[in-house]
């Protein structure tokens, strides 16, 4: 018996250099290029590795995002995912992590119905490079009523009933075992993502990706969108620009070392 796996991937700006519109305070999206959130590549890769490890498994990728986010799903299909699902609806725009995690959980349930099969594992990554919150993974687990472990750096063992994982902690590594179904959020250390194959790329172009709106996944309108969010962004600001400071000059390394030590002493950093 194989395992049924969902990897949650988000399409995010390929750069973190973001500008704000001075008049509206909103992010300028014009000219931004998008790709799979870098860390989500590791979540996808780990899903593919579980599939290779446990015969009979399949991997579905799920995203919530604007219509163009289907590009991220096609990229995931090219890398080896078996199917892809896209949650996209004007009503989803502006959802905070509470609403986003709720919608993704509803999407996961819908995949179960579609496939007439239970999902065993959901994989997310530690965090996105735009929201930087790291909250969506554990939150999905609560909506589904599942256990979760975050900051997973290794899957030690997996079978049809349980999974044993290593979690990176500040002072070392925790080993935990969970009954399936379960959700993992992974860190970069877990694997090295593969590149899409040419064959995969060709196939992904033709793949049919179901797009689901609020009604398709039975979403409760009171929990989603800007209106449903429990947190509100009051304002956004760019941090003060750092301009270069003092350059330590000197004819020799010796001279520079002396000045350098004086300087950090002066700054009370010793």
């Amino acid at each position: 018996m194989g395992l049924n796996i969902v990897a949650c991937i988000k399409q995010t700006p390929a750069t973190t250099s973001i500008q704000l519109d001075a008049a509206t305070g909103k992010i300028i999206t014009q000219g931004l290029t998008y790709g799979i959130n870098p860390l989500d590549e590791y979540a996808l890769e780990e899903a593919l590795r579980i599939k290779e490890r446990v015969p009979g498994s399949w991997v579905a990728v799920l995203t919530l995002g604007r219509p163009q986010a289907s590009d991220a799903l096609r990229e995931a299909l090219a890398r080896g995912a078996d199917s892809a699902y896209h949650l996209s609806d004007e009503a989803f725009v502006g959802s905070d992590t509470y609403g986003t995690s709720y919608l993704l959980a509803q999407g996961i349930k819908k995949i179960q119905t579609e496939k007439s099969a239970n999902i065993d594992i959901v994989l997310c990554a530690k965090q996105t490079n735009d929201g930087d919150s790291g909250q969506v993974g554990p939150a999905i687990a609560v909506w589904l009523g599942w256990p979760n472990v975050a900051y997973v750096r290794k899957i030690q063992d997996i079978n049809a009933q349980t999974i044993r994982v290593e979690r990176t902690m500040e002072d070392g590594t925790d080993v935990l075992e969970m009954d399936l179904p379960a959700l993992l959020s992974v860190v970069k250390e877990i694997n090295e993502p593969r590149l899409p194959s040419l064959k995969g790329k060709m196939a992904s172009k033709k793949a049919v990706i179901p797009t689901w709106k609020a009604a398709d996944i039975g979403a409760d309108a009171s929990k989603i969108g800007e209106a449903g969010s429990l947190t509100k962004i009051w304002k956004r600001q760019t941090p003060p620009v750092r301009t270069g400071g003092v350059r330590i000059e000197g004819a020799t390394a010796e001279e520079k070392a002396v000045k350098f030590v004086e300087k950090i002493k002066e700054l009370k950093l010793l």
């Binding site: 973001i18 735009d130 304002k235 956004r236 941090p239």
Partner: peptide, 15 residues
Amino acid sequence: RSTHGGNLFASIVFP
């Protein structure tokens, strides 16, 4: 909190 890898700061409230 910082977003976009520290390139933006968002002030959030919890009404």
